[in-house]
Amino acid sequence: MPPAPANLLAGLPPSLPEEMLSEILSRPDLRIERIVSTGHASPPGFWYDQPWDEWVLVLAGAARLRLADEAEDRALTPGDHVLLPAGTRHRVAWTSPDEPTVWLAVHCPPRRDG
């Protein structure tokens, strides 16, 4: 029998000392996470550089994402999503300190063409 329905926007704390990461689903080649940020950003000089693809969707709040090869941050609001192919250096430049920013992140192997 399937588990009871859950809501990704339920139980959001107004503030957190660190980002809250909750695994929603995990399989050998797939991981889905809910990430809650309350004013969090990547540490100065830190860049994610992952060997897997990551698709992120902002469900609530607001954020700015910086890609290493772009001069400007990408502003994200609810409904905005971005595919970060494996090896795309990126960082969270800012998340709203006034309300929780809720991300849905899907991690999967990079696409293999040919």
Rank of each mutant, 00 (worst) to 15 (best):
L9S: 11
L9W: 11
A10M: 03
A10G: 05
A10R: 08
G11E: 02
G11Q: 02
G11Y: 00
G11V: 01
L12C: 13
L12E: 10
P13H: 10
P13G: 06
P13M: 09
P14E: 14
P14R: 14
P14N: 11
P14A: 15
P14H: 10
S15N: 10
S15W: 11
L16T: 09
P17K: 12
P17H: 11
P17T: 10
E18V: 05
E18I: 00
E19V: 04
E19Y: 01
M20N: 06
M20W: 06
L21N: 15
L21R: 14
S22G: 02
S22L: 14
S22A: 11
S22C: 09
S22R: 14
E23F: 05
E23L: 14
I24H: 13
I24K: 15
I24E: 15
L25D: 10
L25H: 14
S26W: 00
S26P: 00
R27Y: 06
R27D: 05
R27L: 15
P28R: 04
P28L: 01
P28D: 03
D29Q: 11
D29S: 08
D29A: 06
L30Y: 08
R31T: 09
R31V: 08
R31D: 02
R31S: 10
I32R: 05
I32N: 02
I32A: 15
I32V: 15
E33Y: 03
E33D: 10
E33M: 14
E33Q: 12
R34I: 04
R34Y: 03
I35K: 00
I35R: 00
I35E: 00
V36P: 00
V36Y: 00
V36T: 07
V36A: 01
S37A: 13
S37M: 10
S37D: 07
T38S: 12
T38C: 15
G39H: 12
G39F: 07
G39P: 09
G39V: 09
G39N: 12
H40G: 02
H40L: 04
H40T: 04
H40Y: 05
A41I: 05
S42C: 09
S42I: 07
S42V: 07
S42R: 06
S42D: 09
P43W: 02
P43L: 08
P43S: 08
P43Y: 02
P44S: 15
G45D: 13
G45H: 05
G45P: 11
F46M: 12
F46V: 07
F46A: 13
F46P: 02
F46G: 03
W47E: 08
W47N: 06
W47Q: 07
Y48K: 00
Y48H: 06
Y48A: 03
Y48W: 08
D49M: 02
D49S: 09
D49V: 02
P51N: 07
